[in-house]
Amino acid sequence: MGKRIRVQRRGRGTPTFRALTHRRVAPARYPPTQKLGEKTLKGWVKELIHDPARGAPLALIHCENGLTFYNIACEGMYEGQEVFIGKDAPLEVGNILPVSQIPEGTLIYNVEKIPDDGGKFARASGSYAMVIAHTPAGTTIKLTSGKTTIVDGKALATIGVVAASGRTDKPFMKAGEKYYLMRAKGRKYPITKGVAMIAASHPFGGGRHKHPGKPTTVSKSAPPGRKVGLIAAKTSGRAKKSRAAKA
């Protein structure tokens, strides 16, 4: 009888697969609009803080009305910098404005989908979004992936590009460094491929060569020890090119 596979152990919720969230500083989100008010608010970057499991640093912002919150730091931000929050804020790096007040072609980050959701788009290190057009339905922005989406005109966004854009340029020289990074994110590392295991340890294991030996598509009702691979896949294999593309 084989052992329980990785997906079974992960679903049980043991500390091995649980992220160390108690070490994290705070969520990076904008305050509610009721607390910000309608007038342009002035604040200062009190401190730049490293947040475990986050690629970019956090900026602790103190406002003149006593409000404090954390925002993702951008390229060029420094401690003591003045930031303005509101529709009349100047178009400078680090300032927070509604997307409807930001000109087309401006680079922004930490963009809200709807007001008061705290920020949903362009939050990873080095990422940004670009304002494409303003329409009655909302503001169209282009994401780093190249896709476009429409957000509410009253949604907030920060001017600039998320800091730590060169994070991926530095290689991991030791496996231990990669291990502790993945541990902070609650991910298992290193991971052994199923085809490299013995038949008792994984459904795809065993055999003379590294091949699954059986269809990799399984149903949703498959037992836990067999539910690996493409679960309830509608299609599999390479995507067929359309006739128009071939022509």
Rank of each mutant, 00 (worst) to 15 (best):
R4Q: 13
R4I: 05
I5E: 00
I5D: 00
R6I: 08
R6M: 13
R12G: 04
P15E: 03
F17P: 10
R24C: 07
V25G: 01
V25W: 06
V25N: 05
Y30A: 01
P32D: 13
Q34N: 09
L36R: 02
T40I: 05
K42A: 03
G43C: 01
V45Q: 04
V45C: 11
K46D: 04
L48F: 14
D51R: 06
P52R: 07
G55P: 02
G55I: 03
G55L: 08
I61P: 00
I61C: 01
C63Q: 05
L67V: 03
Y70C: 10
Y70I: 07
Y70A: 06
I72T: 07
A73W: 04
M77V: 11
E79L: 05
Q81S: 10
V83L: 10
F84H: 13
I85D: 00
G86H: 11
G86V: 04
P90A: 08
P90S: 10
L91N: 14
L91E: 13
V93P: 00
V93F: 03
G94S: 07
Q101M: 09
T106P: 01
L107T: 12
L107C: 12
V111E: 00
K113T: 06
I114A: 14
A122C: 08
A124C: 09
S125L: 03
G126Y: 05
S127L: 07
S127Y: 10
Y128P: 00
H134V: 02
P136Q: 11
A137L: 05
T139F: 00
I141N: 01
I141H: 02
K142E: 09
G146M: 02
K147W: 08
D152L: 02
G153P: 05
G153Q: 09
K154N: 15
K154P: 01
A157Y: 09
T158D: 02
A163G: 03
A163T: 02
P171H: 14
F172G: 05
F172A: 11
F172N: 09
E177G: 04
E177N: 12
K178Q: 12
Y180Q: 09
M182S: 10
A184L: 08
K185E: 10
G186T: 10
P190F: 09
T192G: 08
K193L: 10
A196E: 15
I198Y: 14
I198S: 15
A199E: 11
A199I: 05
P203N: 13
F204Y: 09
G206Y: 08
H211G: 05
K214R: 15
P215H: 13
T216H: 04
T217C: 13
V218S: 07
S219P: 02
S219D: 12
S219L: 08
K227V: 03
V228N: 01
V228I: 05
G229I: 01
G229Q: 04
G229F: 02
L230N: 15
I231K: 14
T235C: 06
K240M: 11
S242R: 15
A245T: 13
K246N: 09
A247Q: 12
